[in-house]
């Protein structure tokens, strides 16, 4: 694609003998918003770190698209990596110098103010996250890599975080790649959904497409045999079957009630089914 901004080519990353990321290739377009979901240990964070340059892949490479430089990539993770002994002022000055940021004042997040003299280690998890985000946004990044930070924030900060990211998406046309366990209120933000399992992609779809193509059938009752069941759960009280890929004509032809479900549940179904629909090239 001509407007690819960041691309991973045949990445393999090993921890000891096990490959956390196995021969993964994916390209991200300018301004595209992607969520990478998957089970624990699927390799999502590892992949993100490769894209950020924090981990050097054992095989393959990460290619920066035309016009993208390392200082235009922002990475924030729940590891909250910053020099703890510094004050906010020092952290900002350091970041400003390293990334050649021209604004003199650290960009403020509306409704979120911190004293410049406070030490980073005295900040709460949420405060550090937002601080780091504002540092990154001062870079005016073209790519923002977010690893599992959202769910650790309290509702107020969470709102501020998402608003800030959305603003960046609009103003800077930043490509945002988020790794998330649970999507909840962030479900509508991504345009593209990648699901990882066991170091590989098992799904790469546009969110709207996905919402259209995955339906749930609750309760007992037989399904016509030619309807593809992605995943079925069965407990004492309920039985759910997830259908993928769904076709509208089935709604007419059978009496079965096909429910639309949210992205969270979709992801759950995929992970549960570990359904390998296609390998992402």
């Amino acid at each position: 694609m001509s407007d690819t901004i960041l691309e991973a080519r045949e990445l393999t990353v090993r921890f000891g003998r096990k490959a956390a990321v196995h021969d993964v290739s994916v390209a991200f377009a300018k301004g595209e918003t992607t969520v990478i979901a998957g089970s624990n240990g699927a390799g999502k964070s590892t992949l993100l770190r490769c894209l950020a340059g924090v981990i050097v892949p054992d095989q393959g490479e990460v290619a920066l698209g035309p016009g993208l430089t390392r200082d235009k990539i922002g990475f924030i993770s729940d590891r909250l990596s910053l020099y703890e002994d510094w004050t906010l002022q020092e952290a900002w000055r350091f970041h400003k110098n390293e990334f050649r940021i021209e604004t003199r004042e650290m960009p403020r997040i509306e409704g979120f103010e911190l004293e410049a003299g406070r030490k980073i280690k005295s900040l709460s998890v949420g405060e550090r996250t937002l601080l780091h985000l504002s540092l990154l946004l001062a870079q005016r990044p073209a790519v923002l890599l977010v690893d599992e930070v959202v769910h650790g924030l309290d509702p107020f900060l969470r709102e501020k975080f998402l608003e800030t990211v959305i603003e960046a998406m609009d103003e800077l046309k930043t490509a945002v790649i988020m790794v998330n366990h649970t999507l909840s209120d962030t479900a509508q933000i991504p345009e593209r959904v990648l699901i990882m399992d066991d170091g590989r992609f098992i799904l790469d779809e546009r969110r709207e497409e996905l919402e259209r193509k995955v339906k749930k059938v609750s309760g007992e009752g037989d399904l016509p045999p030619d309807i593809p069941c992605l995943f079925a759960t069965s407990t004492e009280f309920r039985r759910d079957r997830y259908i993928y890929p769904f076709r509208e004509e089935w709604r007419r032809n059978s009496a079965v009630n096909f429910e639309g479900i949210g992205l969270d549940e979709i992801v759950k179904a995929f992970i549960g089914g570990a359904y390998v629909q296609k390998r992402v090239r």
Binding site: F75, S81, L82
Partner: peptide, 16 residues
């Protein structure tokens, strides 16, 4: 310093 202050990831994302 990077190790003791948990800043290693940050240091590795600096633009060089």
């Amino acid at each position: 310093r990077e190790r003791s202050q948990q800043a290693l990831e940050y240091a590795l994302t600096l633009p060089y």
